[in-house]
Design a protein around this nucleic acid. Structure first.
Lengths: 207, 207
DNA sequence: ATTTTTTTATTGAACGTTCAATCAATAAAG
DNA sequence: CTTTATTGATTGAACGTTCAATAAAAAAAT
């Protein structure tokens, strides 16, 4: 099979296989052999393309984060309405995007979440992502409420999103995305209700 | 040192040492030797008292869950007010109890959360706990609102609690318990505000 | 067109390390 | 002297990494 230009293909293959393995048996038992078998290649190839297992894990987490980033950015870019509510709504929708709520992605994310507490490389990635979510939310909330209130609203909504997401990942049947989105949008409505924002029927379409 | 009646002492010692080790290096590198060193005993003793490493981990998670259970139960028992708001407030307070928000407990919990997705023994414990929180919240909400609304409120508040808790565990500086409690209580106020509940200054005392 | 050479991709067995579990030996307490 | 508690060296299995060998494709030469 060896032809030129395999690198991007193999990297993608192995990242996907990593998520599949973590979905199957968890991060603790996702050995290089198991990951390689999922990708249909040998174990040695992982060190060749990622320098080692740690490199593959870091690349996998980076992939998930850029997927999330793109899911949010695409929705915000497609808005015809520039209101804070619309932007925050898009952020919510992006966080419950297809690529995120799939079982392999969800379980992999949670595994990395726990792992990031003790691995500096993962911790940095995780912090960047956290700050971006908070900063984006905060910026939009500040357009309609005082700074102190905006900070609390951003913290609350960020916690709500992560909490819904976490509980979804732990549920045996997987995350119920429509319901999670509905709860998040309802919470957003409640946060904005005191500040005279125009109230869309933003939750009707999600159920 | 060997004298009779060591079992309960050693068990407690080793459970505490397990949390300390997980706090220090994470579950993946919390080896039996490291845990034993934390407790000041030899590695072999773990198999003697817990049948093996898995037994110790399960006992540790069980300990955390019973601590949480007691923290909530104690606060609900001490209520002089029987209102739904008071009960739910006590549940919130219990979830942000001292024993829960300590760094070792928080990191251990998150580690088990991730681990419980693939270890049936831990998954059962986690499910029981989840269901209890949801059922308790749901029961109280039903006293003041229709069943469908109560279910959503319970799901939302449970997600909020877990989300605040999760974000706190990942923050380098640890969880800011007073702020988390304030956000949770504010959310509770918003959930109840449409149902004519008497509105306490329930958040003033927490800041 | 065919053959030879070079480059690139991949394998899989071997190596060294690490870990959990075991158990015979030991030491203190009753 | 018996019982209970504890140790720590040992064992065997599992893991990630390495590297010489291999095979296919591409390039060069005939």
């Amino acid at each position: 099979m060896p032809k030129v230009g395999m690198e991007p293909i193999r990297r993608q293959q192995l990242i996907k296989a990593t998520m599949a393995a973590i979905d199957e048996v968890g991060l603790a038992e996702a050995t290089v052999m198991r990951i390689a078998r999922h990708a249909g290649v040998s174990a040695g190839i992982i060190s060749h393309y990622f320098g080692g297992k740690d490199g593959l894990l870091e690349a996998t987490m980076r992939q998930i984060l850029t997927d999330l980033s793109h899911a949010v950015a695409a929705r915000r870019h497609a808005l015809e309405d520039d209101s804070p509510r619309a932007h925050i709504g898009a952020i919510i929708e992006g966080n419950f995007d297809r690529t995120q709520v799939t079982d392999p992605a969800a379980k992999t994310w949670l595994a990395f979440w726990a792992s990031s507490m003790h691995k500096p490389a993962l911790q940095r990635l995780q912090n960047v992502n956290d700050r971006r979510l908070y900063a984006n939310l905060c910026h939009q909330f500040k357009r309609v409420m005082p700074r102190a209130d905006a900070r609390n609203a951003a913290r609350g909504l960020a916690a709500m999103i992560d909490g819904l997401w976490l509980r979804g990942a732990l549920t045996p049947d997987g995350l119920d995305a429509p319901e999670a989105r509905h709860l998040a949008h309802t919470y957003l409505d409640q946060l904005l209700i005191h500040y005279g924002c125009q109230q869309f029927a933003s939750t009707a379409e999600t159920l």
